[in-house]
Design a protein around this nucleic acid. Structure first.
Lengths: 242, 242
DNA sequence: TATACCGCGCTTGTATGGTAGCGCAAGCGT
DNA sequence: ACGCTTGCGCTACCATACAAGCGCGGTATA
C-alpha cells in the first residue's frame, strides 16, 4: 500500500475529480469494503477542502457504494448479496431488452467500434484492468446499438456493485479473461447474424457467470460482506508517535 | 401562485427535507420546466443555509431533474423527449422482467396490499394526486412480488421523468383515471391467473400509453420541452421598485 | 473486580465567507 | 451609427468556521 506523501492526486480536483477518484478506488477494491472514509482525512490527502469531498461522498452514498452514518463516520459499503442480486437483475433486464430493440441495420460506426474492441480483448497477455475497461465499453456499445445509450449511466451504477464482487473472484479461475472474450465474441456474432434468441441466451448466461465465484469468496473473506443489514460501525482509538 | 411570506416549509429541514420538497414540486409541475433555482433564493425561502440546498440540487441534477450551469445558474430540467423515451425503455425493461420473476406462490401480504390498493383506485371521485400516489404504490408492490423491491429506487428515478410528461397530458382526456385503474386491474388479474404472456402484453401497453398524449402537449406548450440539447441559459435584467 | 457514569475527541451536518467566471449592458472609440 | 471593450452583478464553486451528536475510555463507586 504505497502511501504517497502529500498531495497525491495530480488528476482533476473539484467535486468531479474526487468523485471519480474515489469511485475508481472503490470498484477496484483499492479501498476495501468497510474502510473508513473520513471527510477530513480525504480532504487533506487529496489537497482539497471538505466540501467537494463531502459532495462526492453524498453521490457515492446515493449510488450505494458508500454508507454514511450521521455523526459517526462514512465507510465503503460492504458487499451486500441482495444488492448484488438486484444489480444483476436490473442489468440483465436492461441489456436483454436492449437486444430486442436493436434495429435490423445497426449503426456502422458502433459496429466498427465493437469489432475493434473485440480484437483488443483477444490480444494475448492483456492485463485485467485493461480488460475490464474494454468490457465496460463493449457492453456500453451494445446498449448504444439499441439507441438508448443514455440508459448506460443507470446500468453503470448497477455494474459497480457487480464489479466489486467480480474482482473478488477474479483469482479463482486460471484464465477467465479469455473465456469472457470468447463469450463477448459469441454474443456479438449472434447479434449480427441476426439470431435474437441465441443472443439473449448467450448474454444472459454471460451476465450470470458472476455468481459462480462469489459464494466461494464469501466463504474465504466474510468480512467483506454485510452481515447485519443495519449494523452500526465502531470506533477505535489508536496510539501514534508523530 | 400563492407566495407565502417567510419560512414557508413547515416540513423537515436539512438536506433530506429540501430534496424531497424540491423533488415533489418538480414532478408535480409546481416548479415548471425551465424555472430558475437560485441557491440563495431557495435557501432564504426554505429557511436554511445554502449548503443543504446545494447538496439537494446536486442530487436532483444527478437524477436529471435539475440542470446546473456552472457560474450561471441552476434550472428545472426541460422535458427531453429522448430522456422520456429512455426512462420508458428502462422502466418497461425492469417491470416486464419482474413479471417473469414472480414466483408461483406470491407473498400473500403483498397481494393483499395490491387488492386494497386497487379498490382505492376504483373509488368514485378520487383526486388525481391521490391516484398518482396509489399508482406509484401499485407498481412498486408489483416489483416487490418479484423479490427485487430495492430496484424500485432506480425505477422511481426514471418514473420521475415520465410523470412530468404524464401530468402535462392529464387534462387531454375526459377520465383517464378510470382507464388506468381498469388497466391495473387487468394486469393484476393476469398476474394472479397466472397468465404471464397476457400480463406482459397488458403491462407493456399500459406503460406505453403515456406517449399518446405527450406529442399533443408538445404542440401546445413547446417551451416546456428542450429544443437544443445543450442550449445555454440567458440572463435578464429586470427593474424593480421596492 | 465489576459497573455505572461522565467527559473528550472524533464524526458529520450546517452556516458563512471568499473566489473565479460568465453574460449582459453601458460606454468608449471608430 | 456601429463594433469593441470594460465594468458590474449575478452565479456556482470551494474553503473555512461553527454547531450538534455519538461512542469510546478513563474514573469513581459499589
Amino acid at each position: 500500500m504505497a502511501q504517497t506523501h502529500a498531495p497525491k492526486s495530480a488528476a482533476a480536483k473539484g467535486r468531479r475529480g474526487v468523485y471519480e477518484d474515489l469511485r475508481r478506488r472503490i470498484v477496484t477494491l483499492d479501498l476495501a469494503p468497510g474502510a473508513a472514509l473520513s471527510e477530513n482525512e480525504l480532504a487533506a490527502r487529496l489537497g482539497v477542502s471538505r466540501t467537494p469531498v463531502r459532495e462526492a461522498l453524498i453521490l457515492l452514498a446515493d449510488e450505494g457504494l458508500v454508507r454514511v452514518f450521521p455523526k459517526v463516520g462514512s465507510f465503503v459499503s460492504r458487499v451486500d448479496l441482495q444488492a448484488v442480486e438486484d444489480a444483476q437483475f436490473l442489468r440483465e433486464a436492461v441489456e436483454l431488452a436492449a437486444l430486442g430493440a436493436i434495429p435490423a441495420k445497426p449503426a456502422p460506426g458502433i459496429v466498427d467500434r465493437l469489432v475493434a474492441n473485440l480484437a483488443e480483448q483477444e490480444r494475448a497477455g492483456i492485463e485485467a484492468e485493461e480488460f475490464m475497461a474494454l468490457d465496460e465499453v463493449f457492453h456500453r456499445d451494445l446498449l448504444d446499438l439499441s439507441g438508448h445509450a443514455n440508459v448506460w449511466t443507470t446500468v453503470e451504477a448497477a455494474k459497480a456493485q457487480l464489479d466489486r464482487a467480480r474482482r473478488l473472484g477474479l483469482s479463482l479461475e486460471p484464465d477467465p479473461l479469455a473465456r469472457f472474450a470468447a463469450e463477448h465474441r459469441a454474443i456479438f456474432d449472434a447479434v449480427m447474424a441476426p439470431d435474437r434468441a441465441r443472443a439473449r441466451r448467450l448474454l444472459r448466461a454471460h451476465l450470470r457467470a458472476v455468481f459462480n465465484d462469489i459464494e466461494q469468496v464469501r466463504a474465504v473473506s466474510p468480512e467483506l460482506f454485510a452481515g447485519d443489514p443495519d449494523s452500526a460501525p465502531t470506533r477505535r482509538s489508536v496510539a501514534v508517535w508523530e
